[in-house]
Computed example of a mutant assay.
Amino acid sequence: MGGKRKKTENEGTERDGIVSVNNESNKKIKKEILPSMIKNKEKRYEVHAKLKQQKKLEKRKKLKARDASEKHALELGQEPPPRMVPRTIENTRELDETVCKPDDEELFAGNDADEFSSILKREQTPKILITTCRFNSSRGPAFIQDLLRVIPNAHYYKRGTYDLKKIVEYANKEEFTSIIVVHTNRREPDALLIIGLPEGPTAHFKLSRLVLRKDIKNHGNPTSHQPELVLTNFTTRLGHRIGRMVQSLFPQDPDFRGRRVVTFHNQRDFIFFRHHRYIFETKESKSIDPKVKKANDGKGENIAQEKVIARLQECGPRFTLKLISLQHGTFDTKGGEFEWVHKPEMDTSRRRFFL
């Protein structure tokens, strides 16, 4: 019969159904072994540390090469190469047809006829009624005291045993523009209900990550000046409506001398609330005058220069809101019509946002 065929370098032998591969392929396999595949704990940690150090060095080399190319382009008077934009959940969000556009005439026409137009046009001054749920907690009054310092022209009324519909009727008679109800659970504020008057709408928010003013380290003392309001990233029709509702709680003529800033920042449908005041400080920086240095044979003299530095000081409180529902009209649990309701099936995609 025929003679035995010689084995090539890339060929293995087969014994009892087990294929043994040559040394070169074994080396390739060893290189692709992950730390999670190593059973020995010390060896696994050692390999993981080496891989981490190697990635760190490669990243540092890339940064140095990028900085060198930018510096070289600036020396030649050319435009530096464009930087890569990292992929984030925000810039890879799902397309939404309700995102507001600058040339949306229908949106601007609706702004002139909505429930907040009289306040935002400065035809009416905001007047806020703040109350609690029927079962109050220990941190509830402290949180309300902080809200009274933040929102101008806000008044606190004890809830007692009054029904919320009767409170709405009373607030309409006293010409309040909004009602804020602080709901508590297990001695902790966990929800906010904002009711626009006289015709609504009603927004229900989940409240979380509350830090009171007294618990913030090195907190500032807010003045009685009307604050400047900053709203960011309310991009959709729903977000635009929520932003106008929040905006209607504050006067539209801020007093910039008070240096107070109230921020509502929307990120991934979570609204982060912050209250700051900015401070201007003058600091002296020493520099050597080159003319004096030449005259004194290299021995320069220090010249004091004053620089104005601006910094932020947090006044508190600090909390996060998440929209649960938006209802037409004032509060009505039985016959109310909802504009938008958050449901669990809406959270199937991490890149789908509604505000």
Score class of each variant (00 low, 15 high):
His275Tyr: 13
Asn10Lys: 10
Glu345Cys: 09
Pro290Val: 09
Gly239Lys: 11
His276Ser: 09
Phe116Gln: 04
His342Ser: 08
His328Thr: 05
Thr8Arg: 12
Phe319Cys: 03
Phe338Leu: 07
Asn91Ala: 05
Lys283Thr: 08
Ser69Ala: 15
Lys4Val: 12
Glu24Ile: 10
Ala191Pro: 01
Leu326Cys: 03
Asn10Pro: 00
Gly77Arg: 04
Val47Ile: 15
Glu174Leu: 15
Asn111Leu: 15
Ser117Phe: 05
Ile324Ala: 08
Leu129Trp: 14
Arg259Gln: 07
Gly300Thr: 11
Pro102Gln: 04
Glu314Lys: 06
Thr348Cys: 08
Ile128Gly: 00
Lys206Ala: 08
Glu105His: 06
Thr202Ile: 02
Thr330Ile: 14
Met1Phe: 15
Ile38Gly: 08
Lys52Trp: 03
Gly298Phe: 04
Lys294Phe: 15
Asp146Cys: 06
Thr232Pro: 07
Arg237Ala: 09
Asn233Tyr: 07
Lys31Pro: 01
Pro141Leu: 14
Lys71His: 14
Thr131Gly: 04
Pro201Thr: 00
Val182Phe: 02
Lys30Ser: 12
Phe264Pro: 05
Lys28Ser: 02
Leu164Gly: 01
Pro126Asn: 05
Val211Phe: 01
Gln313Thr: 03
Thr235Met: 13
Arg5Lys: 14
Val308Trp: 02
Arg87Leu: 13
Lys334Pro: 01
Asp297Val: 10
Lys294Ser: 10
